[in-house]
Write a protein that binds this DNA or RNA. Structure first.
Length: 282
DNA sequence: CTGGCTCCCTGAATGC
DNA sequence: TGCATTCAGGGAGCCA
């Protein structure tokens, strides 16, 4: 579920209101509860509960896959990891299984952090700089592919793990990386230092294309998680192993790269770099 | 710097 | 067919 477009969608819903929940801006916190201690990365539970009460929500923004909720005196930062979700509901609705941290507002609503796999984390801090210090650039904010190209050359890594490395580029996950590599016509195992400048440009465009389309579609909804997005209907390769490539009809293949399931078209994304590949006619 | 393991739980897939 | 077991899954910190 939560890669950059899904997190962006959640942030916009919290800031501007979503289809099933109002915006939380200016809401004042009555109290908080923590049911699974490890959810709270920092500070310790007692300090958090004491400090967060009474603060109001000033703004909600996204950085990489982090949800940054600016409160009166502190930042509440949420990372959903694999299976996390945030629900804003009136207090007439019951809490659910796997709700690990709940913010109760003065106005009769609450925000629940739900996460079956318990990988997600919440930080409560005075600043966010320390938390984000090592993050790579926002892919949608990259203007020129020249710098991107140089960075790819400097790192001699397999393309897919590199693109998913948050310290290289911040926000890509498994789904959007597979999709972007297919659009760019690049094999996930290709070494980043073997890219031509033209391929690097194509890759950056593909990344920005797939992310902005994902945001337009309110993200992708998979299985029972993250209702509301529709980008899953436009997947070219992700989750489509054995089905035909939308470009050439070849069956999509699935391999494991860096412990992650990886989907690609063996024809559109050739392993070896034959210099005159698909560049002929489009 | 890189690759592998680990944190957890769930539903689907597999095995007998 | 039915029950039990295994495995894969949106992520990333930590370790060697």
């Amino acid at each position: 579920m939560p890669e950059l477009p899904e997190v962006e969608t959640i942030c916009r819903a919290l800031r501007n209101g979503g289809r099933d929940a109002p915006a939380i801006l200016n809401w004042q916190i009555e109290k908080a509860e923590v049911f699974w201690p490890k959810t709270l990365a920092e500070p310790d539970k007692q300090e958090f509960l004491q400090q967060v009460a009474g603060q109001s929500v000033l703004n909600v923004q996204r950085r990489a896959k982090f949800i940054v909720i600016q409160l009166t005196d502190d930042f509440l930062v949420v990372h959903l990891r694999m299976s996390g979700d945030l629900r804003v509901e009136p207090n007439t609705k019951d809490l659910q299984k796997h709700d690990h941290l709940v913010i109760w507002f003065q106005n009769g609503f609450h925000m629940a952090f739900n996460d079956p796999r318990k990988f997600g984390r919440v930080w409560f801090r005075k600043d966010v700089e320390g938390l984000f210090a090592r993050l790579g650039p926002e892919p949608l904010e990259l203007q020129s592919s020249e710098n991107f190209f140089n960075c790819l050359l400097q790192r001699r890594r397999q393309l897919k793990p590199l693109l998913m490395d948050q310290n290289f580029l911040a926000g890509m996950g498994n789904i959007y990386t597979d999709e972007a590599l297919h659009i760019a016509g690049l094999h996930p195992l290709m070494n980043s230092s073997d890219l031509t400048q033209k391929e690097a440009q194509k890759l950056l465009y593909a990344i920005q294309d797939v992310l902005s389309t994902g945001i337009q579609r309110n993200g992708a909804s998979i299985d029972w998680f993250y209702r509301g997005g529709s980008f899953q209907n436009e997947f070219r390769v992700y989750g489509r192993s054995g089905q035909p490539c939308p470009i050439c009809g070849t069956f999509i293949e699935k391999i494991v790269v860096g412990q992650r399931g990886t989907h690609y078209c063996p024809v559109c994304q050739p392993t070896s770099r034959s210099s005159q590949t698909t560049e002929k006619k489009g």
